[in-house]
Design a protein around this nucleic acid. Structure first.
Lengths: 153, 153
DNA sequence: TTGGCTGCAAAACTTTTGCAGCAAT
DNA sequence: ATTGCTGCAAAAGTTTTGCAGCCAA
């Protein structure tokens, strides 16, 4: 199974991004359309700083503070998730809120998405059968650490 | 199954902590014995700041910078792991490097350990059978989000 | 119109770094 | 005696906050 194939997504149009924001109850300002669009365009779970650089060309006056505030409101609205990373100083964001797992590449620091409904079901059923006495699980995600393999052509 | 029962560990003696450090090829200074001992005593995957507070009573002159440097060297030596958290500004540390999973309580922000060799094997076998084309997994850990249940007495 | 959002900038907070002296081996 | 570690303090980096003005609804 190819990992890269799993994270393939098409860049959404500004109109679609506006729609996402409006549906979430947020104002579709020019800045937020760019920020959310930029996050969607960057596949590798970028930091706020990286999103800021991504949109800098299109909106040179857009401030980093606004990026932070916007990303925060996206998270609250459920449009975006924060990704848990042990290394690295800055938080990283994921525009994909559907259930999926993460592959952490120790070589490139990339975070690749890994979607596998069959695995989800397996874990889900195991946890349900196992049962916790004093913990009620809501969701789970698997953090897989390893290395990308570069195959010779 | 009880969650709290899973994370029960006995506080090690200073002599044992010294031994851990020496075996890892690190100098067993008074500060490091306190820092590693403090981390082992704090069950809830504390921040560097929390470890510093923990040892402050016994060593008032021990500086926060030393705690950071010590924790770093512990991580490099493999004595300690950094825990991946999406929320919260500071990194959190785990003195337990044996394979285990984490339960994140959304109510109390606690991080509980969850050890389950049966689950490990299940996932391990699934991933081996599934196979990745261009990713070589080394290890994995399950992040389970949910809430602690407080049962009436 | 108006309430949320932006930009700017300061502040708070976390983590890293440099270096002289000290202590564990 | 060496060499790594400590303490102090400054610096770097990340994130939050306050506020006046602006803009999407």
């Amino acid at each position: 199974m190819s990992v890269s194939a799993l994270s393939a997504t098409s860049s959404p149009t500004p109109a679609h991004v506006r729609d996402l924001l409006t549906r979430a109850g947020l104002r579709a300002t020019q800045q937020r359309v760019l920020i959310l669009g930029g996050l969607l365009a960057l596949r590798d779970h970028p930091t706020a700083e990286q999103v800021h650089r991504q949109v800098a060309a299109e909106a040179p006056t857009l401030s980093l503070g606004t990026v932070y505030k916007a990303l925060d409101s996206f998270v609250v609205a459920g449009l975006v998730k924060r990704v848990a990373v042990a290394d690295g100083a800055a938080r990283r964001y994921d525009a994909d809120c559907s259930p999926h797992h993460h592959l952490f590449c120790t070589a490139t620091q990339e975070i690749l998405d890994y979607r596998d409904p069959q695995l989800d079901q397996l874990i889900q059923e195991f946890l349900a059968a196992r049962g916790f006495e004093n913990f009620q699980p809501h969701s789970f995600s698997l953090h897989i650490t390893g290395e990308k393999i570069i195959r010779p052509a």
